[in-house]
């Protein structure tokens, strides 16, 4: 196995506000190879976006603070880079698609100007940039003659296509998509996802897809990490996490359990009880224990550790199927 494209090791992030300290990300580790898609799934406030912003080093200044861990991109420690070097990486090697296309385009610049901006910043000259802008627009299915128009002249789905064109313009190695389809309606969602998949394969980009839509993940991703309260509670390949026959973290089970089943007659949805914990006041022990249906005494006191189930399931992949739960720790974590 070669060097992983992106390696997050034991990342801790917190937000210092005037009143409290918010523990947004609590020791997560992830690995992503070239061309792989990772789905980052979790409820609102689970730390998904914080993780993404940490990779780009765009945490809000003075508030967001990385308190531990490292992020290696192509073997380079991103936290050790100078601001100027980091700027060169943003947009050219790592780029990000934001959640809401309505607000992530500048209303007073033409879309052509906005696509060419990122290209000009990363090595294109004024002579070559217009061809590339045309090419990118055609690639995302927008006639290139519309590049002189302003964002308000496009529909939501088309704006997201433009945002994607900007993100992919420099053929980045890593694309971070932060809920790229949440603001779109379902038919457009499918179109946009399909297009992203096609483009991704054309330029062989790795992607981190942040979402709370398990269906989107099933369609797009090779690997899945389920986040809860700033921790990755379950991580594995798509089959590992989605196969109902395998062992799962109670939270993952709850997430899947809350999806209505078309084959069964159900009057009510079955949500996970309770709310996500306040990240400023996380419970002791396992952070999921107040909502867990299989909570044990140990869960209230001791933090669970990652348990690798890969061996048990006969899985041979390079990243195991790990679950952070005491249910599975009885035989391997205690030794």
């Amino acid at each position: 196995m070669g060097e992983a494209l992106l390696k997050i090791e034991d990342l801790w992030v917190r937000y210092n506000t005037d009143e409290t300290v918010v523990y947004a990300v609590n020791g997560i580790s992830l690995e992503l190879d070239k061309g792989e898609n990772l789905g980052l799934v979790g409820e609102t406030g689970a730390g998904k976006t914080t993780t993404a912003l940490s990779i780009l080093r765009l945490l809000p200044k003075g508030i967001g603070q990385v308190t531990g861990g490292s992020i290696l991109f192509e073997g380079i420690d991103l936290f050790g880079l100078k601001e100027g070097d980091m700027r060169n990486i943003r947009g050219s090697k790592i780029s990000m698609i934001f959640q809401d296309p309505m607000t992530s385009l500048n209303p007073v610049l033409t879309v052509g100007d906005q696509i060419s901006e990122v290209l000009l910043l990363h090595g294109y000259t004024k002579e070559t940039v217009q061809n590339r802008v045309d090419e990118m627009l055609e690639l995302v299915g927008i006639p290139s003659k519309r590049k002189a128009e302003y964002p308000h002249q496009f529909s939501g789905g088309m704006k997201q296509r433009i945002v994607i064109a900007i993100a992919l313009a420099c053929s980045p190695m890593l694309l971070i998509a932060d809920e790229p389809t949440t603001a779109l309606d379902v038919t457009i969602q499918a179109q946009v996802l399909e297009m992203m998949n096609d483009l991704k394969q054309q330029i062989n980009t790795s992607m981190i897809l942040i979402t709370h839509d398990l269906g989107v993940v099933a369609e797009m991703c090779d690997k899945v990490a389920i986040m809860y309260a700033g921790e990755i509670v379950e991580h594995g390949t798509l089959e590992d996490v989605y196969d109902p026959g395998r062992e799962h973290h109670p939270y993952t089970a709850g997430l899947f359990g809350s999806i209505p089943d078309l084959t069964k007659e159900e009057d009510r949805l079955s949500p996970i009880g309770g709310l996500t914990p306040d990240p400023a006041d996380l419970p002791a022990g396992c952070k999921f224990h107040p909502r867990c249906t299989r909570c044990m005494d140990i869960c209230r006191e001791a933090q669970p550790v990652d348990v690798d189930l890969a061996g048990d399931a006969g899985h041979t992949g390079h990243t195991g199927h790990t679950i952070k739960c005491h249910l599975f720790g009885q035989w391997s974590a205690q030794s």
Binding site: L56, L58, R87, N88, I89, R90, G91, S92, S95, M96, F98, Q99, D100, T103, S104, L105, N106, P107, E117, V118, L121, H122, V163, I166
Partner: peptide
């Protein structure tokens, strides 16, 4: 606004 953050994510100074 988001587009300022988006511009930062593109490496804009």
């Amino acid at each position: 606004q988001d587009f300022v953050e988006a511009a930062k994510a593109c490496g804009t100074s």
